[in-house]
Design a binder for these strands. Structure first.
Lengths: 179, 179
DNA sequence: ACCTGAACACCGTTCAAGT
DNA sequence: ACCTGAACACCGTTCAAGT
């Protein structure tokens, strides 16, 4: 059957899940698809563009947040949702950063806008979107890099990024009304 | 003259400044040093380890902050100082993230601790350190990736990350007493 | 329209051998 | 101790040619 952008991105995601970015070369991707490497370049002009398509798929998995809590609770849920999407795929932080830099739609922006307006703080939308997105990507990058290093060298001490993420998110949202 | 770790890191930083991470291959590095690529492996076991040494040098340029303002002002200055160090070298965010993941000392941790204790909020040190560091790295990564994309494709719209950084930092520090 | 085959110009890393 | 020379096993990308 003929190749399609969708099937290429599907397979790219599968390879990422198995071995991260180093395991997703254009050559292994082609092999997995039963095609020559050069065939991929008919569908995508470069690996970078292919990766932004992957990033868009990752961003599409960010869950939407129900308007049922305080502003702080909703913003916390938005941050946690982005974190789940980003850390759900190995090297996801790097890939999503590429996607956002390339102009991908950031679902966090709209979610934060909705929450802020609902709670009468629409003027804080831009700052909170930047802070939340940057924080999740940055800590996600550290976490995934740390994981990659530990795979190569098990001597490296383990770090639990879960509580660390919660603590940073709490500090980040301390200025948002709790009730 | 014989090679040394210092001279290798010096030259690595010079190459990074010229063309970023893609311009800093072990081969170009060796050529610039007038040596064979394999010679580098006597001084560093891998490129990754060499890059963490580069990261430590970058982190060492983070300026220390004078205790002359409010807690919020001092924390803002700490964040700005880290940003300057990180964005001062092309692909610095990625490199510093690698360094921190490898266990490099984070100068922000100590600076935040000093400020927090001076202002009677020592219990907030950990959260603020994580939030501040993650945010600076994350937005820095987006910014530098965006810059790299624009070098390859000038069609991509320019974005001024300066005001965006300020806005996010303001939101991040909104929960810290201003006076 | 969609893909093959072959090549170009690179990578990081290893390791015997030299001095 | 410190480095060379040569090789191994890869990369992303291009492009004429096929169907």
């Amino acid at each position: 059957m003929a190749l399609s952008k969708t099937s290429v991105v599907d397979t790219a995601l599968a390879l990422l899940g198995e071995a991260g970015l180093p395991g997703m070369s254009m050559r292994t991707l082609a092999t997995r698809l039963g095609v020559q490497p050069s065939a991929l370049y008919w569908h995508f002009p470069s690996k970078q563009v292919l990766l932004t398509a992957v990033a868009e798929r990752v961003l599409a998995t960010v869950p939407s947040v129900e308007p049922t809590g305080s502003a702080a609770d909703e913003l916390r849920a938005i941050g946690e949702g982005l974190r789940e999407a980003v850390t759900g795929v190995p090297d996801g932080a790097e890939i999503v950063a590429l996607g956002l830099a390339a102009g991908a739609r950031n679902p966090v922006a709209e979610a934060v806008a909705a929450t802020c307006e609902r709670h009468g703080m629409g003027d804080r939308t831009a700052g909170l979107t930047t802070a939340l997105t940057g924080y999740v990507i940055g800590l996600g990058l550290e976490e995934q890099t740390h994981h990659n290093l530990r795979v190569a060298d098990p001597e490296l001490p383990a770090v639990d990024f879960g509580p660390r993420f919660d603590g940073g998110l709490g500090a980040l949202l301390a200025g948002v009304a709790a009730g």
